[in-house]
Design a protein around this nucleic acid. Structure first.
Length: 822
RNA sequence: GCGCGCGUGGCGGAAUUGGUAGACGCGCUAGAUUCAGGUUCUAGUGGGGGCAACCCUGUGCUGGUUCAACUCCAGUCGCGCGCACCA
């Protein structure tokens, strides 16, 4: 019986161990990447946090995964870049200012200081020299330079259009930032508003953004790829002109002679019985402005135009005849024009041809208003029939298949100069203006004489004024007495500075390049091309699925833009993506409002960082949701205590040479388990990320070691287990590695010794007709014939009155005897 | 409606990718240690049956392929996520 009188000193003391190693790592600058770019690199990146004040469990999970990978590759002698920074601009800082009267800047930087400490108590191996906050003036400086370059390259423009306005956030939102008609941040319904703003032409890159998803196949989650494809929404078809009749042209004051419509089904063009315009369409506007509609109709159309897209999507089909007609480009028929609430203003020109026989929406609308329905595709019992088939009543195209007639109809219209093959995207250009204070100023100036002028690059950064009053009313930059007054960069006369700030997604679109740039060069340039080419793409990116569209699409887009600017030579920023699941408690997302949070600080105070990290990686595979479980945390703590308590078992300070054949069978078993865990390690760290199974294998190995007492086997076991657990529970692993092996076990590349898997006897399952009946122990080199003899004997009980018709031996696994009654 | 994914003990989850289902952990049961609680240790733990060796049954459901299916195929039900009048 061991004496445990001085157990307190002997026992596992996470606080002391963790503090000690965190200090050592800091003084050793253990996590800084090397400047030597001839070394093989790994860039491991967890999405950077918004400095909200405190870490939550989602952060802990995110960084525990990234840290495990970074530490693994560092040990494998890769040059590892594992940076952290702060996504520091954004609304919550202003909300805190309104609520608590704290200046956003002060609030943000003090949050960063606190959270940086939290990260270090968790022992994450981040590079310290590359840390930055996106609200740092130096970061804005380069971002503003990129924005100006985009403007010069014709990729960025200012335009007044209908935008999504969120009243509580007091700003416009990009399309991606509207979820089911509501603001992604505050979930209130967005309003449509006409106002000027800055846009980046992301649609120009739509094809590349779509096509390059193929390169990511198998490396990004399928779901994310599908969401991106869906969002880009490429569709090919026909765009053609609907010529207005002479009478209609006259009615429209000669202002319009035709309008464009888009269809993906040119094969149904002979089935057109009406055409429909969005309520916002210029022709409808003209009719309203010139009182060419009766009062009731006009009112109804205005009501539709003022309702949100979301409301319209839920409303019944509704529309009004406009009293004008167009001419069918192929048949010359007169087609009535309607306005309809289901036609989207923002897609395909805001106008459609309507083929009620072959489109559900058109059908429903036609039914409601008694419009004619003309079938032109054979197939299906009932209308609408939206499938493909043989064309009828389609003039010269009769009898041909939809599939091969599409191209012909497009060509036909092209020849008549009435239409052309076109590609449309659901993706819209990225609106980057925000009418808020706490963001990077958009570096433009409005000059009465020169118009819109970009700021001179040498004047960058344009920094925010600090003496502002944040009340939640209006834009503080707009309201500031002097800030917006400036000199025109072009003519030098008095001008007005732009008061919109950049969408915060702009900052997170290029931060991966900033980390890669040697900090010594941060003053000189935003991105160093050689550094970027060396470090990027990020080998493994880790973050929440909630960024599947927004951030990941923007960052991919920026990468391509920066490439075209000559900042780097890569096409895709993130080679592999891991989307972690949420951390739940009581089956609900942890949140302050639900009161179901578990505070990382409290957990660390109670059990230590290693337990927190171990639990979070053990409880579920990283991609899945993780249900918090206090007693399972205890279990993780118990494992670490057990590991620690076994340190005296290892008596040799190097990896011992062991003669496997002389060992007892529990010792052999223990070695096999240890090496199984080692085998698993590389697969887990490099491929599957199923840390839960690696931890399970390590637990099995420790349990097996504990069932034997050979100190060499113990030494070898600890040597290996501490190595493979170090990325997960670094403090206790390093502590034990230091005291047992002078940390030599942490730098070595460990070899798998195949001989430990060779067993004296192996167990084969005996199955009869695929059903397991019994098992046999045999020597591994027993010939097949002999195995069958033993197997038949072992199974004889179940084979009575049967005749064997087939025998299958799966080496090392089982014997299956296939038998039939005689 | 369309797209993607998932259904395995009381719970979290394993299963070398077609070869002994339920590893590992939590929980639970019994026992040991303890004045007691906690800790720790030992044994057991999918369901049903049997004194027992054992037997039956079992991966949402129904079929199929195969010597062999949690794994592959078809259908079906349920759940989750995303998109949603995109012409």
């Amino acid at each position: 019986m061991p004496i445990i009188a001085y157990g307190e000193e002997m026992g596992y003391n996470p606080k002391e161990i963790e503090k000690k190693w965190q200090a050592i790592w800091e003084s050793e600058e253990a996590f800084e990447p090397s400047d030597d770019q001839s070394k093989e690199k790994k860039y491991i990146l967890s999405m950077f946090p918004f400095p909200s004040g405190r870490l939550h469990m989602g952060h802990v999970r995110n960084y525990a995964i990234g840290d495990a990978l970074a530490r693994y590759y560092r040990k494998r002698n890769f040059n590892v870049l594992h940076p952290i920074g702060w996504d520091a601009f954004g609304m919550p800082a202003e909300n805190a200012a309104i609520k608590h009267g704290r200046h956003p800047k002060e609030w943000t930087y003090s949050n960063i200081d606190y959270m940086r400490k939290e990260l270090s108590t968790l022992g994450f191996s981040f590079s310290k020299t590359r840390e930055f906050a996106t609200c740092d003036a130096l970061y804005s400086r380069w971002e503003q330079a990129f924005i100006i370059k985009m403007y010069e390259d014709g990729l960025l423009y200012r335009e007044s259009t209908t935008v999504n306005w969120c009243e509580p956030c007091h700003t416009v939102l990009a399309n991606e930032q509207v979820e089911e008609g509501c603001c992604w941040r505050c979930t209130t319904e967005v309003q449509l508003r006409e106002m000027p703003g800055y846009y980046i032409d992301i649609v120009k890159y739509a094809d590349e953004l779509l096509d390059d998803l193929e390169q990511l196949e198998g490396k990004w989650p399928q779901q994310v790829l599908a969401m991106q494809r869906n969002w880009i929404g490429k569709s090919q078809g026909l765009e053609f002109r609907f010529e207005l009749t002479k009478e209609s042209q006259v009615k429209l004051g000669g202002k319009f002679d035709a309008y464009q419509v888009f269809t993906t089904r040119p094969d149904t063009i002979y089935g057109v019985t009406y055409s429909a315009l969005a309520a916002e369409h210029p022709i409808v506007k003209y009719l309203l402005d010139h009182n060419l509609l009766d009062e009731q109709t006009a009112e109804a159309i205005i009501r539709i135009a003022n309702s949100s897209e979301r409301d319209r999507a839920q409303a019944e089909k509704e529309g009004y005849a406009l009293g004008i007609d167009v001419i069918h480009p192929l048949t010359g028929e007169i087609i009535p024009v309607w306005t309809a609430n289901f036609v989207l203003a923002s897609y395909g020109g805001g106008a459609v041809m309507a083929v009620p026989a072959h489109d559900e929406r058109d059908f429903e609308f036609a039914g409601r208003y008694g419009l004619p329905i003309k079938r032109v595709i054979e197939g299906g019992e009932r209308l609408p029939y939206v499938g493909t088939g043989v064309l009828v009543e389609s003039g010269e195209f009769n009898g041909r298949e939809s599939g091969d007639v599409k191209e012909a109809i497009i060509n036909h219209l092209e020849e008549k100069s009435a239409g052309k093959g076109t590609t449309n995207y659901k993706l819209r250009n990225w609106g980057i203006s925000r009418q808020r204070y706490w963001g990077a100023p958009i570096p433009f100036v409005h000059c009465e004489a020169c118009g819109l002028v970009p700021e001179k690059v040498e004047n960058l950064p344009i920094v925010l004024p600090e003496d502002v009053e944040i009340t939640g009313e209006g834009n503080p930059l707009e309201n500031h007495p002097t800030w917006k007054r400036c000199a025109c960069p072009q003519c030098g006369k008095e001008a007005i500075r732009e008061t919109d700030t950049l969408d915060t997604f702009v900052q997170s679109s290029w931060y991966q390049f900033r980390y890669a740039t040697d900090p010594k060069k941060w003053d000189e340039r935003g991105i160093d091309r050689d550094d970027a080419n060396y470090w990027l793409p990020v080998d493994q990116y880790i973050g929440g699925i909630e960024h599947a569209i927004l951030h990941l699409l923007y960052a991919r887009f920026f990468t391509k833009v920066l490439r075209d600017m000559g900042q780097c030579d890569i096409d895709e920023p993130f080679e592999r993506l891991l989307t972690q699941g949420m951390v739940l408690k009581d089956s609900a997302k942890m949140s302050k409002s639900k009161g179901n949070t578990v505070d990382p600080d409290g957990l660390i105070a109670q059990y230590g960082a290693d337990t927190a990290r171990l639990f979070i990686l053990f409880a579920a595979p990283p991609q899945k949701e993780l249900e918090w479980n206090d007693s399972a945390v205890e279990g993780a703590f118990r494992f670490i205590k057990k590991l620690y308590s076994k340190k005296e078992k290892a008596t040799e300070r190097v990896l011992p040479e062991i003669d496997h054949s002389t060992l007892s069978s529990p010792a052999k078993e223990a070695r096999a388990k240890v090496y199984e865990a080692l085998k698993k390690a590389s697969e887990v760290y490099e491929k599957s990320f199923a840390f839960n199974t690696l931890i399970a294998a390590s637990m099995e190995a420790l349990n097996a070691l504990d069932k034997q007492d050979n100190s060499s086997v113990w030494s070898e076991g600890m040597y290996i287990l501490l190595n493979l657990l170090e990325p997960i529970i670094p403090h206790v692993s390093t502590e034990l590695s230091e005291s047992l092996f002078d940390r030599k076990n942490l730098s070595a590349t460990l070899k798998i010794k195949e001989e430990v898997f060779v067993q004296d006897t192996i167990t084969l399952a005996i199955t009869i007709n695929g059903k397991k009946r019994t098992q046999i122990d045999i020597s591994p080199d027993t010939p097949k014939e002999e195995i069958l003899v033993i197997a038949r004997e072992a199974g004889s009980k179940w084979l009575e009155g049967m005749s064997i018709i087939k025998e299958i031996v799966v080496p090392g696994k089982l014997v299956n005897l296939v038998a039939k009654p005689i």
